[in-house]
């Protein structure tokens, strides 16, 4: 098989903003001294009068974005996930969430694949934080095509959205005609033995795991669940009913993210055994991204291992 094209979803974020910005004058982009890293520099270059740098002051940036939205602008406030969701949590909650304002938070450098910067910058708690805010939509796209579509969908919907992007270049597996819809999961492979529900860069790993499992005689259903909130409950229930076993995969703590959202739903509506693959309540550390992902079990091989044990094979 030919080597797949790889793109970091943070690059997709910058590119999508620049594209949307050309059509929509009300779209403005805010940064906190990280325009180069969040890739919004592309937008800044194209529309300098619509890019506002707030310096290293995320709290102020997030609240200012809220103020801008009350005047009809659609601000995309950008920073690393650690600082957008972490440092500015209470500003997101009170300035944006409580008044339910039309602000989009573009959080790059999510998860441990940040790599060499280490634990201080590897945010594995953002889904948990953002999911807990009433009315907040939380999305973690899997590849370049989906990330661009998610930025567009976030712009088009009215209300607060948290978008999580990655630093590491990951395979682009969606075709250009892929139709993304907020709140809808995507069945990438049908199956009957175990349902593997993933998001972010774990989705491609799940696809690969599905192929390896097929060779071992396990027919896995593979689902891409980019929207963590609102969760596509119908699809999760359908998958659980059909397979009787569910594995969740995310580059996030097993506490509070996709895994927990799926468990909450299933335990109330259709009790089903679940295995959660994620960061197991620990901090990350420095290292090359791919090596770290392997070390933390966030890779196809580990998904295969868990699935085999789960299916008793």
């Amino acid at each position: 098989m030919a080597e797949m094209k790889k793109v970091a979803t943070r690059d997709s974020y910058g590119a999508a903003l620049a594209e949307l910005g050309a059509e929509h004058k009300d779209l403005v982009v805010l940064d906190a001294d990280l325009a180069g890293a969040t890739k919004t520099a592309v937008f800044k270059k194209a529309f300098p009068d619509r890019h506002f740098d707030f310096g290293i002051a995320e709290a102020n940036m997030v609240s200012a974005a809220a103020g801008m939205s009350t005047a009809g602008l659609v601000p995309f406030a950008s920073s690393f996930a650690m600082f957008a969701a972490g440092r500015a949590f209470e500003q997101v909650r009170n300035s944006i969430g409580y008044p339910h304002l039309n602000v989009k938070i573009g959080a790059t450098h999510g998860g441990i694949s940040v790599g060499e910067d280490g634990a201080s910058h590897q945010c594995c708690e953002d889904f948990a934080l953002m999911r807990s805010i009433p009315g907040m939509t939380v999305i973690c796209p899997a590849d370049d095509v989906e990330a661009k579509a998610a930025v567009k969908a976030a712009y088009e919907m009215n209300g607060p959205v948290y978008l999580r992007f990655g630093r590491l270049a990951v395979p682009v597996f969606h075709s250009e005609d892929y139709k993304f819809q907020i709140g809808k999961g995507e069945i990438l492979k049908d199956g009957t033995d175990v349902a593997i529900i993933a998001n972010g860069l774990l989705t491609y790993e799940a696809i690969q795991a599905g192929e390896i499992l097929a060779e071992a005689g396990i027919n896995a259903m593979i689902i891409n669940m980019a929207t963590i909130k609102p969760l596509d409950e119908e699809l999760v229930l359908e998958a659980a009913k059909k397979c009787g076993k569910v594995i969740t995969c995310e580059e996030h703590s097993v506490i509070g993210g996709l895994g927990e959202a799926v468990c909450s739903l299933l335990s109330e509506k259709l009790p089903t055994p679940v295995r959660r693959i994620g960061v197991n309540d620990e901090f990350g550390h420095s290292g090359p991204a791919v090596a770290l992902l392997k070390q933390f079990g966030l890779c196809a091989d580990h998904i295969v291992e868990v699935a085999k044990e789960f299916c008793g094979k």
Binding site: A66, G67, N94, Y98
Partner: peptide
């Protein structure tokens, strides 16, 4: 009421955002 407030320190930032938006538009 033009902005929901209560958590001290945030209101002034939202006012900054409103003033920036007025300038931009």
């Amino acid at each position: 009421v033009d902005m929901s407030t209560g958590s001290l320190g945030q209101g002034i930032s939202t006012a900054v955002g409103m003033a920036m938006a007025a300038k931009y538009t």
